[in-house]
Simulated assay, not measured.
Amino acid sequence: MKIAYIKTQKSGASDDLLAELVAQLQAAGRQVTGVIKDQNHAPSHANGCDMKLRVLPQGPVIKITQELGAGSDACRLDAGALMQVVALVEAGDIAGSELFVLNKFGPEERLGRGFCAAIATAIEHGVPVLVGVGSASEAGLISFAGGQAEALDGDIGSVHRWWSNARSKADPVET
């Protein structure tokens, strides 16, 4: 199993790194599936708590948060929109990709929902998996990966080295 995660101290840094990696790999003709945060979306809240995700490899871009008003401190996640994104990812060619990327292993994944089945599909087919993770979800990711998730430095060089090594050792799980 080849699964790695990026945990950075600066908010948004892992999103920037994943977007840079995906752009580089796609420019080189590599097949990447999953989702990344849409870098063209300007959050309307100071905490950056509204976002759009871009389904890989070619889109669409879907807003996964809802407007709750300026005074609200409730979770802004639009579960229906997130499930739409999940369905699009799961309908894609995960098995035929060279890398599966998930912008964030978060609360839904900690509960065994969200993108868990898509990650499992990638792993089943020997596709390396790279995810962003925050402090609150790191233990959940490690547990989900059976203790086999590898932490990476938050720089593009270490991510490229991991991916190159993971590709060379990627073998589908025998069933």
Rank of each mutant, 00 (worst) to 15 (best):
E108N: 12
A118Q: 03
V159F: 09
I119H: 08
A149S: 09
A120W: 08
G126L: 10
R113E: 10
T121H: 00
S143W: 01
P107I: 15
A149Y: 03
Q148H: 08
L152V: 11
D153Y: 07
L152G: 13
E109C: 00
G134Q: 10
A151N: 01
G146P: 10
A149T: 06
G114H: 08
R110G: 01
A118M: 04
G134V: 14
W163Q: 10
F115C: 03
A136M: 12
E138T: 13
G140P: 06
E138A: 11
L130W: 11
S137E: 11
P128L: 11
G147F: 00
F144V: 01
I142L: 04
A145N: 07
E109T: 00
I156H: 07
I119R: 05
A136V: 14
R110V: 04
G140D: 03
A118G: 03
A120E: 12
V131Q: 14
G112A: 00
L111E: 14
F144L: 01
V127K: 02
S164L: 15
A136K: 15
G114M: 01
L152I: 11
W162C: 07
I123V: 15
D153A: 08
G134M: 12
A139N: 00
S137Q: 06
I119M: 13
G126A: 05
G154Q: 13
G114F: 02
W162M: 04
G134R: 09
G134L: 14
E150D: 08
S158H: 15
A149C: 07
A136P: 12
G147S: 02
V127H: 03
A122M: 04
S158C: 08
R161K: 15
E138V: 04
W162E: 09
F115G: 06
A145S: 06
A151D: 04
L152P: 15
R110H: 02
L141A: 01
G146V: 06
I123C: 10
C116F: 00
E138S: 03
P128E: 13
W162R: 13
A149R: 07
G134C: 08
F115H: 05
H125Q: 05
P107R: 14
A118T: 03
A166H: 03
